[in-house]
Amino acid sequence: MSTTLRQRQTVLTRTVLYGMAILFLAPLVVAVITSIKSPVEITRVLALPTEFYWQNYAAAISRMGRSFLNSIAITVPAVAFSILVGALAGYPLAYMRGSSGKVVYFLLLTGMLVPFQIVQIPLFFLVQRMGLHDTIPGMWMVHTAYAVPFCTFFMRNFFASVPRSMYEAALIDGCGPFLYFWKLLLPASASGLAALAIIQSRAIWNDLLFAITLTASDKARPVTVQIAGFASSLQVEYGPLMAATVISVVPVMAAYLLFQKSFVRGLLGGAGK
């Protein structure tokens, strides 16, 4: 291949990349600009603010208050539990032969199709009977339970990308199925686990529906309920809403930056030893 063709290719990919970056950033820029506008200036969407209206951030922070801590207390353990449960279920489903594994897999996957809006009544009863209504552990349990299908699906497919020969070799070496899971499979799937951790952090952090049904007070209400609160029946306080959004994105981005460090090329040959 000639160098000019290669250069042209590079130029093309760069153009695509920068173009996409602009498309992705533009709405965010509008959001950030709005978050520093006063109510008077917000009536002109695209105009730049003449002053930094920090009151939006003050309003967002005072409104979010304790709910921010609740969100952290809900999200961190719930992410860990849901990944653990997904990995537990994904492992046998990726390795089991025969139809029983497929039936379980199929059943778990159908779970993803249940529209959550409709199961709120039975769910409320369940959680209430367990004494977990309006508690943070109740939220862990519900988020873990409703993550079972997705996390299983995700981990099963990620485990499937680890060559089966490694599994068979391990069993022959006298390494039991549990040790294999713990010592070999999980480390070899680090980037998958990290990706799932990021996705789950985002999903649980941003959950509104379960939070509204299953929490009732400051004891357990997460930050999404407060953010949604900036949009009232008739009015939307756009400035504080966007300020609260900017703030609430930070933890998820932190999780992203933390976990994506595991996205390093695996050395499968090395992991097998």
């Binding site: 004494g131 977990l132 508690t135 900036f230 009232s232 029946s233």
Partner: peptide, 23 residues
């Protein structure tokens, strides 16, 4: 733990539910 926590909290306030959330 959570159960014992809620049981210990006596209710002396009442709630009024509304959707006037902003502004």
């Amino acid at each position: 733990l959570a159960w014992s926590g809620t049981a210990a909290l006596a209710q002396d306030t009442y709630e009024i539910w509304h959707y006037y959330a902003a502004g």
